[in-house]
Design a protein around this nucleic acid. Structure first.
Lengths: 301, 301
DNA sequence: CATTGGCTTTATAGCTATAAAAGTGCAAAA
DNA sequence: TTTTGCACTTTTATAGCTATAAAGCCAATG
């Protein structure tokens, strides 16, 4: 069974959803339904469902479709193991090599094709993504330039300072609306985090949780430019965090503070919520983030 | 004489610099120097210089290089005439068609290739740029999606609200440094604007002037994330302004306020400068920007 | 001694054919 | 009636070749 990039992305997401409890055990997983949700056609979805069945993460009933098995936790554990040992995708590989100074600041596409054995399209695709995430840019003529913006621990502080300037003010926007549904859902997710054994979760999942919370809150401002700006710095932050060890103790504090902010918002106390958000971010800034630096040890401290 | 895309971009920029006074009359324009400044090789620069000489915008002395003629204003006038009648570049064409609802929200690359007669690479290049500027994104599977974020007058207000939240605070960053050289240069540019006949300048030049001032100031914060965020919304703003008529009266007020901010900064009074910046932006927000909307008249007012 | 001008090398854009992946419609099964 | 399974269409990716653009080099010039 071949599996294209898209279909494997879909299986990843499906597993995440099953693992996080968004899709319950015993539930029917329809191809059309999934396709609609992700905005793609049924073809790659069916491939993904096939793959997951082959790995025992879904059971299949002829002509009736796929279902989430009742006893899935063991299989999920196994899958998590596999994930931990998985090779990084090309994008992460390039990002990593840049962060640890394995590639020069300016490169030609040719250089990357040779070094990594990528096709012309793949090189382009990856560089486009890096451009979008803000750490690469096309040179005027031939070649590309990588930006040092994501390389240093200082960037981390700068990102927090930036967030400190947009997140609390976004909550004070005149168009800010208290969407109960969003608040309830976020409360559910944060509480779920606190209840779950953090040790068993993938780093990516943990990091994503924090980002999603803040992005959902800033989304309530009704001003998309705040959201876009936050997403942008979050993506860059994750790029760096990807390389670092996560302090899971710190995450508990983080979730607790998130819940406190939610509580204030649920009471309709936006001003205090905004203030608490400021404190929350300041705290993260002071503590130098919930991660420990594993690279850039050669930089000036 | 053939002239590649890059070399014509360079000539455009050079003319802008000459017109805006950044390169003074009589000054020597070295190929190497220009190449270094733009980060390209001398080849396209030489092409550009050649073109400009052919049009009489530069004079050439054999083996000594190119110089800005003393009496250049007439030639510049002529060139400005030509520019006004120039066809829009493909990117602006697509942006325009999207803004005036001439293309659907979701398209395939094929569709664009047919509609505009672009090559595969060109389509890709333009979509990448649109992605970077924030109003297009790749769909999961095949196809692209255009985002409505840049389409409405409301976006304009939202951009100003966003700037209101980052620009004054950026000036209060602990790493903010008063770079005299930058301040002097900006003062020079703003004063030059006020002295020049605004009617004779290209819209792009006028719009660029405002953006550059704010970007240079925010750059002084020492936190690149503020700059990146501002550049991003400015690009989108310009996309919209490109379609609208500029109120040149308003620009005089703008320049004056810019000079007031500079004055405070030169005195080292950062707090008041930050406050003035806030006022400056609020003013623009209230006055609904120095442009008049020429499209989207069908939207809810 | 930096800078230009001409020339060589290298890199990317454009094109074509082909492979692969995603999208789509319809009959068959539950 | 809904959903799967399958055949078929459309769209995009890949590869290799050619043309052209950009980069890099070096001698000549002021």
């Amino acid at each position: 069974m071949r599996s294209s990039e898209l279909s494997s992305r879909i299986s990843q997401q499906l597993i995440q959803e099953i693992a996080s409890g968004a899709i319950a055990a015993g539930q029917h997983v329809g191809a059309q339904q999934v396709a609609d949700r992700y905005g793609v056609s049924r073809t790659p979805v069916r491939e993904a469902l096939n793959t997951l069945e082959a790995r025992g993460l879904l059971s299949r009933q002829a002509n009736r479709g796929y279902f989430v098995p009742e006893n899935i936790s063991d299989t999920l554990e196994q899958w998590l193991e596999d994930q931990h040992n998985k090779v990084a995708d090309p994008y992460q590989q390039l990002a990593n090599d840049w962060l640890v100074n394995q590639i020069p600041e300016e490169v030609t596409e040719q250089f990357l094709r040779q070094k990594y054995g990528w096709t012309k399209t793949k090189v382009n695709e990856i560089l486009v993504r890096a451009t979008r995430e803000g750490w690469a840019e096309r040179k005027e003529g031939y070649g590309w330039r990588f930006l040092p913006v994501a390389k240093t621990p200082e960037s981390f502080d700068q990102i927090y300072r930036f967030r400190l300037s947009i997140e609390p003010t976004a909550m004070m926007e005149p168009t800010f609306t208290l969407n109960r549904k969003v608040l309830t859902e976020q409360r559910r997710l944060q509480e779920h985090m606190l209840e779950t054994d953090l040790g068993s979760m993938l780093d990516e999942t943990l990091l994503a949780n924090g980002s999603i919370f803040h992005e959902e809150i800033i989304k309530l401002s009704g001003n998309p430019f705040f959201l876009i700006a936050l997403q942008r710095v979050n993506r860059m932050r994750r790029l760096m965090e990807y390389r670092a060890k996560i302090d899971r103790e710190r995450l508990v504090v983080q979730c607790t503070e998130h819940l406190e902010i939610l509580e204030l918002l649920e009471k309709g106390d936006v001003v205090d919520a905004s203030y608490k958000m400021r404190q929350h971010l300041s705290g993260a800034l002071k503590r130098k983030s919930p991660i420990a630096w594993s690279w850039a040890s050669d930089s000036d401290t």
